[in-house]
């Protein structure tokens, strides 16, 4: 296990690379979901406003 984590001496380069890229992957999921949620909330508000006018 320790040997695996050490990455043949390249741990300081390999693990940050994986961390950054996988963080981008996870952030994309979070951003996409929150942007959809925002749009849905905005659409709901628009509908409510239209309904109040009618």
């Amino acid at each position: 296990m320790r040997e695996f984590l050490d990455m043949g001496g390249y741990a300081a380069f390999v693990w940050p690379s994986y961390a950054v890229t996988l963080a981008v992957v996870v952030l994309n999921i979070v951003w996409a979901r929150s942007s959809l949620a925002r749009s849905r909330a905005a659409a709901r508000r628009r509908l409510a406003a239209a309904g109040a006018d009618a």
Partner: peptide
């Protein structure tokens, strides 16, 4: 591991797809 870069080459699995 790569015969020259050792385990350092494993960065390719993140860099190239990105």
């Amino acid at each position: 591991p790569d015969y020259q870069q050792g385990d350092g080459f494993r960065i390719i699995y993140m860099h190239a797809p990105s």
